[in-house]
Computed example of a mutant assay.
Amino acid sequence: MSENLPNDHSKQDKNSTEELDLVVFFSLIGNVFSKIYKFFASIIKGIFSVFVFALKAIIDNFKIICIVLLSSFIIGFSIDKTKEPIYFSKMLVKPYFESKYQLVNNIDYYNALISIDNYDELSNIFQIPKEDTKELVSFQIEVGPETENDLIRQYDEYVQSIDSIRAQDISFEDFVDNRDLFSSDLFTIEVKSYKRDIFKSLTKGFESTFSNEYSKKLMKRRDSTIVIKKLAYRKDLQKIDSLQKVYLRILQEESKKGSVSIGLEGLIPLTQDRTITREFEMFQNELRIRDSIRVLDQQIIEQNVYYDVLSTFSDVGLKSDDILKKFALLLPALAFIILCLTFLGIKTIRFVSKYEA
């Protein structure tokens, strides 16, 4: 009995130590969760305090705020009613021979001319009276309307033009996200003006926008390449025609000779073999070559200009109602921001003047 007592005491001490460790562990976990709770609670309390503080400031100065906002709204509304209206119209174009780069560059150039009041140059470019160029407000270019199928087609063409290993790392979403203005084949040109019926007269002036030495060089190179290909195709057609005439002559001669049969009552016939010709294969080749020539002629017909107008400017422009340029909304918003900054400035000055280190 006496020998078992020390063992019992040691087991009790061990159990007490384990229980104490568990209590300390759970106490630490409780403290961690308590600190996390207090942290988020302090954030929520701070946000709520800021909201209440701002709301209190608005309530205390409600009359002043209403007077300032109402006054700024009336002033802005009066400006909107008295200022000259702006009209806009859009044109959808499809450039060829990389003339889109010249188009974008010229749009920036036109805006620069407007900003420096160089109406003589604008009048010379668009062949319109100088008084009309003074009515121009801005030019803008953006990507034309594109469907999902258009984007997929462009993605397939892009993937086929690069290395197959690198193409595996470029998804359709990456391709769409990394596209810029020059990635499109269609462009929307928007012109804004104070004059409502000026847009149609600008159409002809855009012809020079697409023409440049590089585009002319590409068109000339394309035409020269087509001429060389058509000459080669016509030579192939001449060869096929010559072979067809030879085959036809052979067949005519064989048809005149007929067949010869020698043997005992026809048991052992001897028949003259016909010459093997390939008229059908040559006919198929001729069709393929003529189809290739037709494709080249069609390409010249479809792309014999530097751009195509898919949708031209309207005769009369639409009134621009850009909400971001409404003074009836801009002035009250600006006045409210100034009031808030003024209030914060006053509070800061008062706090600093009363602050004692």
Rank of each mutant, 00 (worst) to 15 (best):
R153L: 05
I125R: 12
E121N: 00
Q154V: 00
Y158R: 05
N111G: 10
N149R: 06
E131I: 00
D117L: 08
L151H: 04
P145L: 08
Q154F: 11
Y109R: 14
T133V: 06
F139A: 05
N118T: 01
D108V: 02
L122A: 08
I141C: 06
P129M: 04
I114T: 06
N124P: 02
Y110V: 06
Q160S: 05
I141T: 06
P145T: 07
E157R: 00
D156G: 01
L122W: 14
E121S: 05
D150V: 01
I114N: 08
S123N: 05
Q154K: 15
E148I: 06
I141N: 09
Q140L: 08
Q127R: 11
Y158K: 09
T147W: 10
K134E: 14
S123L: 04
V159N: 05
V137D: 14
D120Q: 13
T133Y: 15
E146F: 12
K130C: 05
Q127W: 04
Y119I: 06
R153E: 14
S138F: 14
I128K: 12
L113N: 07
N149H: 01
S115E: 11
E142R: 15
D108P: 10
E157G: 04
G144S: 03
V143L: 10
Y158S: 06
E148Q: 12
Y119Q: 08
L113C: 10
D156I: 02
N118K: 05
Y119L: 10
L151S: 07
L122N: 11
V137T: 12
I125P: 05
Y155Q: 03
Q160C: 01
